[in-house]
Design a protein around this nucleic acid. Structure first.
Length: 564
RNA sequence: GGGCGUGUGGCCUAGUCUGGAUAUGGCGACAGCCUCCUAAGCUGUAGAACGGGGGUUCGAAUCCCCCUACGCCCGCCA
């Protein structure tokens, strides 16, 4: 793999470093990507000027005079130095790299570290709703990005099969007559069972005895009552089937599941509580054990010494750390404090690695909170079905897809739209889910990306497939828009690195949109198959785009329709 | 009361970490483009001094302080 853009960056940093004798990190920090007219990279010399105690104009002048770039040129503009890469060279090499790597274009050398990305981990008490879908979409996209950047990634789901939520569900299943429940609106196990959960919550509010019965269940489960324990595990298992089914439709597949109950069964939670009680920041109150940091107490064990969630989650993180070198958790913003606790406590216990945590804020539905308990939500399944139907309608309206492919194409477009709609917004920003926006298939949407891909595909299908020998192409006199397209393509590995480094999957979505837009312009301006003297060259560019966009879509978990 | 996060044209959004040269893109609006590889596309116009105020700086959407609106959290729940 040869990525000209990365080589160019290195060259700039190296040469500025040699000329000014300032640390490379400092140059790297200051090097930025300016607006297009000014070149590919820019170095403002102001902050260098304070360390070097020299006029920034002088520094810019010195750099522009002394530095000779192998594949590009350098220009001083006031206190700035602008670097421009030789576009013909960049385009040529990018074409070669794309044609050689095909859809692996953009991937970086394999790294030694094993990574574990934990995402979703929703309580198994009912189907995922649109709000809960944000977590898996962020998690899966990050996992895909990290894979592309070279890590071996395991996608993990932590199944909370013993909490209060489970007790409520199990109580409902054991005590509520199916006839009292509303009709099933979808034949899917999680949708069927959530009715018991919702009805149990209603009983809980109306009847005080129910609370007592649920407490009793939790107590007997904790005391090791095998029968109750089995009920908990079975119910969780069933709901998990439903959740996994919904996720699979979005191209989200977990590699492994770890249940909370297993950590209790194998004694690792007790062990963790023992470890905790030995460290300085731990205290006891009334027999209960807590961890304290910055005046904030987190209880890890009750006075009867049964474990609390924080202790179990610590044991879980210790276990994860034994499976991988780098840990990444994707959590809702309600877990921020808990996340801090986990990181602090692991530090104090000297347990490594400490996880990186991506927090995302909540999704509201047309301004209102979504709640599984209250049943006020749009389920992910419902969203996916509606997206599929809308995509199907659009396909039929246009009539470009083959009849036998309508369903599979509608699925790719619909599911792509779902994922893209969620992933294009940075995680920490709140999303208000509005049907019309979610199902807008124009502009900044997945179908826009897929459309550009099918356009490329369509050209390539019409091409006679005559021999295309990259090295014998005439790539000397490329036109502006051709080079712009290749430049855009060449940025892919850089974007992947930035998205991974900042745990910002939305950066990839933004790039995907820029890439598709660039191709749409190329498509308008440069006939490919009708071209008299550049047909093969342009076919090579279209192929390059198809490979690059194919890789981008794969990293976003979005399907690639052939026609649409 | 305290902590964390968010506030950018009518609406949604990038940029904020790592301060820099005319603030990104989409929706909507208006005006255009299909005898030519799919118009889910493309071109153009109008529209924001970046929640408010103060400060640091040669320079602030970006850093610091105060205020404000909204979300989340502050349980021997998870």
């Amino acid at each position: 793999m040869k990525y000209v853009i990365l080589e160019f960056e290195d060259e700039i940093i190296q040469k500025v470093h040699e000329t000014l004798q300032v640390p490379k990190e400092m140059i790297e920090e200051n090097l930025e990507i300016p607006r297009e007219e000014r070149g590919d990279y820019a170095l403002p010399c102001y902050s260098l000027s304070s360390t070097l105690k020299k006029d920034p104009n002088k520094i810019a002048e010195e750099l522009s005079e002394k530095i000779e770039l192998e594949r590009g040129h350098i220009k001083k503009t006031g206190p700035y130095v602008n670097f421009e890469i030789d576009k013909a060279y960049l385009s040529r090499e990018t074409i070669f790299t794309c044609l050689e790597m095909e859809e692996n274009f953009g991937e970086l050398p394999a790294k030694k570290e094993k990574m574990m990305v934990e995402h979703t981990s929703a309580n198994p008490n009912g189907p995922l709703h649109v709000g809960r879908a944000r977590n898996p979409i962020i998690g899966d996209t990050l996992a895909r990005i990290y894979e592309k950047v070279g890590y071996d990634v395991e996608k993990q789901y932590y199944v909370d099969d013993i909490g209060r939520q489970m007790a409520i569900l199990v109580w409902g299943i054991l005590n509520i007559d199916e006839n009292e429940l509303p009709k099933i609106e979808r034949k899917k196990i999680d949708h069927e069972l959530v009715r018991y959960y919702q009805e149990a919550n209603r009983s809980l509010e109306e009847d005080e005895n129910v609370e007592q019965e649920i407490q009793d269940m939790i107590r007997s489960m904790e005391k090791g009552d095998e029968k109750i324990f089995q009920h908990f595990k079975d119910s969780a298992q069933k709901i998990m089937e439903g959740i996994a089914g919904s996720l699979a439709r979005l191209n989200i597949v977990l590699d492994s599941y770890k249940s909370e109950s297993s950590l209790i069964e194998d004694g690792s939670v007790d062990e963790m509580i023992k470890k905790l009680s030995k460290i300085e920041n731990t205290g006891e109150e009334d027999g209960a054990i807590y961890y304290e940091k910055d005046g904030k107490k987190t209880f890890v064990a009750r006075k009867n010494r049964t474990s609390l969630y924080p202790a179990r989650d610590l044991a879980y993180h210790k276990w994860k750390g034994e499976q991988a070198d780098i840990l990444l958790d994707v959590l809702g913003e309600d877990h921020k404090l808990h996340g801090e606790f986990i990181r602090n406590a692991l530090e104090d216990l000297d347990i490594r690695p400490v996880p990186q945590i991506v927090f995302h804020s909540f999704v509201t539905f047309e301004g209102k909170e979504m709640s599984t308990r209250k049943g006020t939500y749009v389920t992910l399944d419902q969203f996916m079905d509606t997206a599929h139907e809308k995509a199907k309608e659009e396909i039929q309206k246009r009539g470009n897809a083959l009849p036998e492919e309508v369903e599979s194409t509608a699925e790719k477009i619909g599911m792509g739209a779902v994922r893209y709609h969620i992933i294009k917004v940075q995680p920490q920003k709140p999303i208000d889910f509005v049907w019309d926006e979610a199902l807008d298939f124009e502009g900044d949407s997945a179908p826009f990306l897929q459309y550009s891909y099918t356009r490329a595909n369509s050209i390539l299908e019409k091409w006679d497939h005559s021999t295309l020998e990259p090295r014998s192409l005439d790539l000397q006199d490329l036109e502006e828009g051709e080079m712009r397209l290749m430049k855009r393509i060449s940025e892919f590995p850089r974007v992947l690195m930035d998205a991974a480094h900042n745990n910002s999957p939305h950066l990839l979505a933004k790039y995907a949109h820029r890439l598709a837009a660039e191709f749409n312009q190329f498509y308008r301006d440069y006939p490919v198959l009708q071209s008299k003297n550049k047909k093969l060259e342009r076919v090579a560019m279209v192929k390059s785009f198809k490979f690059a966009m194919g890789g981008v879509l794969r990293s976003l978990g979005i399907g690639k329709p052939r026609k649409m």
